[in-house]
Design a protein around this nucleic acid. Structure first.
Length: 576
RNA sequence: GCGCUCGUAGCUCAAUGGAUAGAGCACUUGACUACGGAUCAAGCGGUUAGAGGUUCGACUCCUCUCGAGCGCGCCA
């Protein structure tokens, strides 16, 4: 049981190796527009051994390695080999996958311990649209990594430390804990932060108190820590309500705030010093990773300890690397952080490599993403020019879905409607986020997002709901068709079967580049293949055994859709 | 100034170095008293920003140019 395209590869590998006189030669099997699959490997191999590519391709075909699995194999163009799979072969493969709870997806080998760092909101600050990207992408990746068998450790590196906490704590004292609690509970985190900041700028006495408070905080003053903890608790409680609404896996157990790494900073400094990487530069302690320059073309340092003796976020990130490698035994660290941090991470990772904390077996990867743009192609802002609150986006998405349902499916009872509206609204929002290449900026568009046409969350959910509806109407238990024999003849069945069998590859290629949009594209193609099949091939009206065979295709399609959406963090309602 | 990322149909987006660059929206046309019409099919639409190079083959890799966004020393 495997993607048929992979089966071709493994069948052809010995043939190619033999033709290359025992050297390795990649058959290069790819899905094709001209056939079920195409084999491209004859072209480079012919070049290598100095022979005619078409003749070589013909020898590959004549070797007969594919006879059991293909119905046709022919040389085309300059030396491609086009193959179509034999119907019975595909049918058998589908029957096997239908019985498999994992839908044909194998475990990763080797399995790794993967630390994935995402979301990272700031204490006493609102979560805004930028957090949507890291949160949704990180969550989807963590689900996929976990599903293929990796040991996944989610870390929410919240901003809970640093200079602003002096003024935040002083402001908390000024207005009283109860008033603060109320304001923060009412989603007025930004108002709190701004009030503190305004006082800091306007009131020198307050500013001085704030600076002293930072020192108290850093020295672990018991009362100060208690106030700080109160701020952190109020904020994380708020983050949790957002995560719950959005359906994000992060919980308090995953909190790994900046504060947690403070005690590790002196040791980080000491180890860099011992490795003789540390340099004194204008009073600061820095490391110069090669290849980075500043405006004047001079070497650009990573500042480990400021002239004032304070540590920086670079130090914190390095301490974090050490912690993840040595305490959590990470093989792979993913940082789902905006693309603007790219140079910073390059420098941090380079220094970590120089210090020996990272090597070929322990890898750190920045998984960057672009910004969310408004209709004017500028960074998305609210009307007042503020960053858009994440919670407002979530609520509006659900409201829009609810309105659409009220119009299009008014018979659904209100309780179910509101639950399904939540699934659709959140799904639309997440899918819009996930379905385009993360590294590019993307244009936020409500109408497109909640549309049922095109590559959208609701379209995929609809395809799934239709299949559920079909089974309700048929009054057939879905599990009963999972052991049924499969047989088919229509090209739409053939195409759908081939698509279903390539689910493992879709997950694989998605994880290769940590690009969730590849899984989205796969699911969209699955949904369109299904609708073509559904249009062309009657299910309930068909005679046995075709009817049951088609029901089995429907069931498997629905399972892959629901499962794939699940990996993206999106629910698939049974009716909508 | 240097660095990173991006530039694909009118719009929004795809495309492991493989053949004639694909979808959706919009526009045009068609199917069907509908196994959920929240549908399907067809048409229109391209010098992949531009110029070189590597390659049997380039949207993809390399160089340069243009344009956009972001970053560039003690904030995080």
């Amino acid at each position: 049981m495997a993607d048929p395209v992979l089966t071709l590869s493994s069948l052809l590998q010995p043939v190619f190796d033999a033709l290359a006189d025992g050297n390795e030669a990649d058959p290069t099997v790819r899905p094709s527009d001209h056939a079920d699959a195409q084999i491209n490997g004859a072209l480079p191999l012919a070049k290598r051994i100095g022979t005619n590519p078409r003749e070589l391709a013909q020898r590959v075909v004549d070797a007969g390695a594919l006879d059991d699995v293909v119905s046709a194999a022919e040389v085309a163009g300059p030396g491609f080999i086009n193959v179509n799979f034999a119907g019975p072969f595909l049918a058998d493969q589908v029957a096997e996958v239908a019985e498999d709870e994992r839908l044909g997806v194998p475990d990763a080998d080797p399995t790794k311990t993967v630390v994935i760092d995402y979301s990272a909101p700031n204490v006493a600050k609102e979560m805004h649209v930028g957090h949507l990207r890291t949160t949704v992408i990180g969550d989807a990746l963590s689900r996929m990594l976990e599903f293929v068998g990796h040991h996944v450790i989610r870390e929410n590196h919240i901003g809970d430390w640093g200079r602003p906490f002096g003024m935040l704590i002083e402001h908390l004292i000024d207005i009283g804990e109860d008033a603060a609690a109320e304001g923060l509970a009412q989603n007025e985190l930004d108002a709190f932060y701004k009030a503190a900041n305004a006082k800091f700028d306007a009131d020198e006495e307050f500013a001085e108190r704030s600076r002293q408070r930072v020192v108290l905080l850093q020295n672990g003053d018991v009362d100060t820590i208690a106030l700080w903890q109160r701020l952190v608790d109020l904020s994380t409680e708020y983050f949790n309500t957002v995560y719950d609404k959005l359906g994000i896996l992060l919980s308090d157990d995953d909190l790994a705030g900046e504060s947690q790494y403070q005690p590790l900073m002196p040791d980080t400094l000491a180890r860099l010093e011992a490795s003789e990487l540390l340099v004194d530069d204008d009073g600061a302690r820095v490391v110069f990773p090669p290849g980075f320059t500043n405006r004047d073309g001079d070497p650009l340092p990573l500042i480990i300890q400021a002239r004032t003796g304070g540590f920086n976020y670079a130090t914190s990130d390095l301490a974090c690397v050490i912690d993840r490698v040595e305490r959590l035994n990470a093989d792979l660290m993913l940082y789902v952080v905006d693309a603007g941090q790219s140079q910073h991470f390059q420098m941090v990772f380079e220094v970590a490599r120089m210090a020996g904390w990272l090597d070929a077996d322990t890898e750190a990867v920045h998984v960057p993403f672009g910004v969310v743009l408004g209709p004017d192609r500028r960074r998305l802002r609210s009307r007042s020019g503020e960053p858009v609150k994440l919670i407002d986006l979530v609520d509006e998405a659900v409201d829009r879905a609810e309105a659409a349902m009220a119009e299009k499916n008014p018979d659904l009872d209100p309780a179910e409607r509101s639950e399904v509206a939540r699934m659709i609204g959140i799904g639309a929002l997440k899918y819009a986020e996930l379905s385009s290449d993360r590294v590019k900026d993307y244009v936020f568009d409500w109408d497109r997002m909640v549309s049922f046409d095109g590559n959208t969350g609701p379209y995929l959910q609809y395809a799934h709901a239709r299949i559920c509806s079909l089974f309700r109407r048929a009054e057939v238990d879905r599990t009963s068709v999972r052991t049924a024999p499969i047989e088919f003849g229509e090209p739409e069945e053939h195409a759908l079967a081939l698509r279903l069998l390539s689910y493992p590859t879709a997950i694989d290629t998605t994880l290769e580049t940590y690009s969730p949009h590849k899984l989205c594209t796969y699911l969209y193609e699955l949904a369109t293949d299904f609708t073509s099949f559904y249009e062309r091939c009657p299910v309930l009206k068909a005679d046995e055994p075709t009817r049951t065979s088609r029901l089995a295709l429907c069931d498997l399609t629905a399972r892959v859709l629901a499962h794939g959406l699940g990996l993206l963090g999106i629910d698939a309602p049974e009716r909508m």
